[in-house]
């Protein structure tokens, strides 16, 4: 196979494992599709394949953004990473954020979809208001929420003091800052999951409910015996997408707390950014990136296993 000489006509060489090409479609039809995917193929190779491999390559060098001569380090970056507590602290922050944000982002989206899946003006209004925050950019969202959390004149602390409790300096208190970021994130991004659930709800045929109603199923039984099981594949999809999105947390935290107070919210991507760009240590940052890449792959595989198992059970 490897030494097979390509020919422009492409019809002379017999290929052992494929259909005999002699009487097949002409060359343009057979290979023409390549030209259509070529623009994407080039971009893919340039902006994904090449950076992916050069990242792995860089992780074995002391590559510096400053452009000084680079030397081969072997596994030194990787060894440094395993002994660097900041890596594991920030990875833990990312995992804590994921664990805190994923359940509400799935459950609240489901509840909102059930509420908004109705006709008429109210349904329209609910759909609009649930999805609206999602279209805002991260900078706007964080600006709004930093003011909401502000001690002294912020909305949340205003409500707290009106209710007779003490003010909380949300973004500057170590065990409150992450919660504050999670609340902001849920408000901001739940709209997307809501939309997926809404589409799934609208895909369930009415006859199923009619049949159930004739059999005397209550609304509660319909919800738990029909709606939720029929949406299990959507739930699986949402959980996968949400886990990956939460693991990639950076924007909100960088803009709201800058990883503080005292690094209590710094996610691993911010630590990678600080090493690679603020400190110019591209080599070391690449090593951490690859470790984090493996974590995401493992989480995704585990999730697919769970999801696949459930599908067989159905």
């Amino acid at each position: 196979m490897a030494v097979q000489t390509p020919t422009r006509t492409g019809t002379t060489e017999p290929q052992p494992t494929r259909q005999p090409p002699r009487n097949g479609p002409p060359w343009t039809e057979k290979w023409g599709g390549l030209f259509f995917v070529a623009p994407f193929g080039v971009l893919f190779a340039f902006f994904l394949l090449w950076p992916t491999f050069s990242g792995l390559w860089n992780s074995f060098f002391n590559t510096s953004l400053a452009g000084v001569q680079q030397e081969f380090l072997g596994l030194a970056n990787w060894r440094e990473m395993f002994g660097d507590p900041a890596v594991w602290d920030s990875l833990q922050n990312t995992l804590v954020f994921t664990a805190m944000s994923t359940p509400p982002l799935v459950i609240i989206a489901l509840v909102m979809a059930l509420l908004a899946n109705r006709k008429g003006l109210l349904g329209w209004f609910l759909r609009f208001s649930y999805f609206a925050p999602f279209v805002m950019p991260a900078t706007v969202v964080t600006l709004i929420w930093v003011w909401i959390y502000q001690p002294g004149f912020g909305l949340v602390n205003g409500l707290l003091t009106a209710g007779g409790s003490a003010e909380i300096d949300w973004l500057n208190t170590e065990n409150r800052a992450m919660l504050a970021v999670v609340i902001t994130t849920v408000w901001w991004t739940v709209g997307f999951n809501f939309l997926l659930y809404l589409a799934a709800l609208q895909g369930i045929p009415d006859q199923v409910y009619e049949a159930a109603a004739i059999d005397g199923a209550s609304g509660r039984q319909q919800l738990f015996r029909i709606t939720l099981p029929l949406m299990s594949r959507t739930t699986g999809l949402i959980v996968v997408l949400q886990l990956v999105a939460s693991l990639k947390i950076f924007d909100q935290i960088y803009l709201m707390t800058d990883g503080g107070p005292n690094y209590a919210t710094r996610p691993i991507i911010q630590y990678i950014y600080e090493n690679g760009f603020t400190s110019y240590r591209i080599g070391y940052a690449s090593a951490i990136s690859y470790m984090f890449f493996l974590v995401i792959v493992i989480v995704s595989i585990a999730q697919f296993r769970l999801f696949g198992g459930r599908k067989e059970a159905n």
């Binding site: 097979q4 290929q15 390549l34 030209f35 193929g41 080039v42 491999f53 050069s54 390559w57």
Partner: peptide, 23 residues
Amino acid sequence: MPHAAPPPPPGRPTRRTLLAGAL
């Protein structure tokens, strides 16, 4: 800069030509 690009799949030479052209 040396980097490991995956070898093009055998029997699909046009991609390589295209890639070179695009580069």
